[in-house]
């Protein structure tokens, strides 16, 4: 009996956006009298940080500081339509909608500034720190807040924009399967290292190291969070989780967390990653979706590592100690 180590890899792609399209997201942006901007959505933040990254995208497009943007979601009386948060679609779809809305709102803001400065709108620029100015004439500068206030009280105008993004619906040819099932594809390659105890069949995952290509990272810490959390979930799917421990028999299904197995903080592998940015043609600032795919490549990487360590190829998930011990038994002469 021994502890055997092995390494396995897997390489995957993953589609961004709702399969086949036809899934609109909309956004409204308006300025308040104090010069902050409100982004109104009905999209949902699942914890991945949608509110935060949408605020960043809006600030970038508007040319104002991040803390000048408030993201207000999700209320169907106020927020325009959104298909929902799933299919790694939210940052891509909502981000594009917010860019469109922010471009329109920014133009309304520049129009007021141009009128006030008696300049052409092409000459007006935002410095990204809360000021509007006539290009090359720093003396003719005014805080966004002042222009926003002026728009409402002096000119009687709204500073607002509407945005929508929808990938047109693609039909599937029922005979050939010809279709357009994604907006873009993100990629990952994961290498896992495991140690298998041949006495107990238990697997210790020593490390999960990955490269991800995600188009562009709006918020690298949040991307890192998806990768770390996804690596854990992938490991959990590979080795622990199921609601049918004797599948396909439905018996002994877990009722609570004491019966539903997942790895805890004492089972954590070393998790490392590198993130490549190769902007997509159609995502906001080149974004691709990262939310879902991070649990995918760790699973086969771990299963391949177990084979490398033991010579036992397991083709059914989860890879329980029982399956490994039966596999080891079958290999004995």
């Amino acid at each position: 009996m021994a502890k055997l180590r092995g390494t396995g890899m897997a390489a995957v792609n993953y589609p961004t956006g709702m399969n086949l399209g036809g899934d609109p997201s909309q956004a409204l942006v308006h300025a308040t009298t104090s010069g902050s901007f409100v982004v109104t959505l009905s999209a949902t933040d699942l914890g991945q940080g949608l509110r935060t990254v949408i605020g960043q995208i809006a600030a970038e497009t508007l040319g104002v500081a991040y803390d000048q943007v408030v993201v207000d979601t999700a209320d169907t009386d106020t927020g325009p339509h959104d298909m929902g948060t799933f299919a790694s679609r939210a940052t891509h779809r909502v981000g594009n909608a917010v860019i469109a809305a922010a471009v329109e709102a920014r133009k309304a803001l520049l129009d007021v500034a141009a009128e006030e400065f008696e300049a052409s709108v092409d000459e007006i620029e935002l410095d990204g720190h809360g000021n509007l100015m006539v290009r090359g004439v720093p003396a003719r500068s005014m805080p966004v807040a002042e222009v926003a206030s002026m728009a409402q009280f002096k000119y009687g105008r709204t500073i607002a924009g509407r945005g929508s993004f929808m990938k047109p619906r693609s039909e599937v040819d029922p005979e050939t399967g010809a279709m357009d099932p994604d907006s873009t594809e993100a990629h990952a390659c994961t290498v896992a290292e495991v140690e298998v105890d041949t006495e107990t069949g238990e697997v210790t995952v020593l490390s999960i190291r990955s490269a991800y290509e995600v188009g562009r990272q709006v918020n690298p810490a949040l991307v890192q969070g998806q990768i770390t959390g996804g690596a854990w979930m992938g490991m959990s799917h590979a080795l622990y989780e199921t609601t049918a421990p004797y599948y396909p028999a439905p018996d002994h299904s877990p009722r609570d967390f004491s019966e539903y197995l997942m790895p805890g903080p004492l089972e954590l592998p070393e998790i490392d990653c590198v993130v490549l940015e190769m902007p997509s043609s159609n995502g906001p600032y080149g974004v691709k979706g990262i939310g879902e795919m991070t649990a995918n490549s760790p699973i086969p990487a771990i299963v391949n590592a177990i084979y490398h360590a033991t010579g036992v190829r397991i083709d059914s998930l989860p890879v329980t100690p029982e399956k490994i011990l039966r596999g080891l038994d079958a290999r004995r002469p």
Binding site: D45, G49, R51, T52, G55, Q56, I57, A59, E60, A65, Y66, V71, G128, R216, Q217, V218, N219, P220, A221, L222, Y285
Partner: peptide, 12 residues
């Protein structure tokens, strides 16, 4: 880019 690409604090 000024804001996109920065690890700003989560708004929540």
């Amino acid at each position: 880019l000024e804001v996109v690409g920065r690890s700003v604090e989560r708004s929540d």
